[in-house]
Design a protein around this nucleic acid. Structure first.
Lengths: 129, 129
DNA sequence: CTGCATCCTCCCCGATACTG
DNA sequence: CAGTATCGGGGAGGATGCAG
């Protein structure tokens, strides 16, 4: 009768369904925030995004775009010319995320210095003994 | 002259310093949000947190707490009794994070259903061809 | 130009055992 | 009670090659 394991499984299941956790898992992803921000000003082509997010690998960019498309946050438009042209744009749902991203940016700009100071102090203390 | 590699390194360095990215990396961490929420109502003991976040391993809980302490978001208080008692509490800086967490939760509750619908539709379309 | 498949590496995290 | 140290599996992610 592994009550412990049961409780853990139940909690894991709960976490997997928790909307806030799902959202955090999404936007916490390294490339998601960057892609969303890159699309904030309007649609962009795949290659354009790749050039903007210089250090993203092709694999991760595609994977990120697919996930965002799957979640209805961005729309993918294929223009069957030669060569093919693909545009990505924020959907209304994706745009509704922008204020939240701005709030996050604002907090970061307001308080990240404090965090850095705390971090430096903690490391100094650890180094000193 | 690998201009490409240079650009990537520069961009990586930029990202590493970007406050918003640092914040996202923090709160995007699976256990950080849960610990912060668990401490929102007041100080808690280590064992108490472990029991609340049922499925967290000792290692990850300690690691998460250390990181949050290092960043000045939570305070660690040791009471040298026998056995030792350790309390964790949000600092003012950590508390300033709560409105942001609430905003995230709000967005999630307002829009996560849409995301789930989009996801189901996408998967259905993929399955159907 | 856009994107998928494969291989391969690294590191995150869980499990376990031990300490003050 | 509150950690630290160590080992090993698994998954994330980069590099490369190929396709439409």
């Amino acid at each position: 009768m592994p009550t412990d394991a049961d409780a853990r499984a139940a909690y894991d299941a709960y976490l997997a369904e928790c909307p806030a956790r799902q959202l955090l898992a999404r936007i916490g992803d390294k490339w998601v925030s960057l892609v969303v921000n890159a699309l904030a000003d309007g649609p962009r082509r795949y290659g354009d995004l790749a050039r903007t997010l210089v250090s993203v690998s092709q694999k991760m960019l595609t994977q990120t775009l697919r996930n965002l498309e799957r979640d209805g946050l961005i729309a993918r438009t294929v223009t069957p010319s030669v060569p093919v042209r693909v545009d990505y744009a924020l959907t209304p749902l994706g745009e509704s995320l922008l204020p939240l991203m701005r709030a996050i940016k604002t907090w970061a700009e307001d308080h990240m210095d404090d965090v850095l100071v705390a971090r430096a102090g903690y490391d100094a203390g650890a180094a000193a003994g």
